[in-house]
Simulated assay, not measured.
Amino acid sequence: MTSGESAVSPARPRRLGLTGSIGAGKSTVARLLRERGLTVIDADAEARRVTEQPEVLAELEAAFPGVVVGGTLDRAGLAARVFGDPALVARLNALTHPRVRARMAALEAEAAARGERWVVQDIPLLFEGGLEKGMDAVLVVDAPLELRLERALARGGLTREDILARDARQLSSEEKRQRATLVLDNSGPLDALERQLDAALRQLGIL
């Protein structure tokens, strides 16, 4: 490279935000998007990886004593500790969110280097975090409440009351639908969901 020349970074891929209320089927849609060749960056998975790092575990234990057990984060215990306390939630977010964002930015840069035109950012609390502003389009997966409860209960680990409490902390399904670019209604069979997804991707110019 001669003097005066500068490295040109690949253009940022367009971002398709993917979100939905608990039990709506967001993970199923993420899988279908991967099957269609799209890079899906999973915010929850990146958060788990971040909280496996020794330095992050040390910071979490210092901030919330007792949440690291045998070198592993007690996620349920940490969630119970901060639940309902905005100050503790803010403290937790300050520790983890910058690192998660950095990991997601690195994965997006890798997709850009591969020449990908779109990436999917799978973010459960996309609207709640104000992250829709950074998206080029937002896809919301939705289903009726009772069906969502049934699915979430079938996964195990949460009671009906737990699920309803989590759902109540998020924007309502109606609000998410209003803010979405496109909505997938996941109240029917898988093939119906796939048809809706393919139509949405065509409408956005992704397929």
Rank of each mutant, 00 (worst) to 15 (best):
M135V: 04
R148F: 04
D74P: 02
T51I: 08
R177Q: 13
T39N: 05
A168P: 00
E35V: 07
T19Y: 02
E150A: 14
V69K: 15
D85Y: 06
S21C: 06
R160N: 09
N93E: 15
S9G: 08
H97G: 08
G84T: 09
Q53I: 07
D198M: 10
A79I: 07
A43R: 00
E150S: 13
M135T: 04
T181Y: 05
A180V: 10
S3G: 11
L18T: 02
D167S: 11
V141I: 15
P189N: 13
E46A: 14
G115W: 07
V69E: 15
V100F: 02
A45W: 03
I163A: 02
G129E: 06
R103S: 12
A165G: 08
A45V: 11
Q53A: 14
L92A: 04
G130P: 02
L139N: 00
A11C: 08
A113P: 02
L204N: 03
K26S: 01
A192T: 12
A113F: 06
V120F: 03
L125H: 04
V67S: 01
P189E: 14
D198L: 12
A152S: 13
L107V: 09
L95D: 02
L92H: 01
R151C: 06
S6A: 14
D85F: 09
I22A: 05
S173D: 15
D198F: 08
R15I: 15
K176I: 04
V67K: 01
G20A: 10
L171M: 14
S173N: 15
E61S: 10
A137K: 03
L193E: 00
A137W: 02
L204A: 05
G77L: 07
P10Q: 07
G130A: 08
G157R: 10
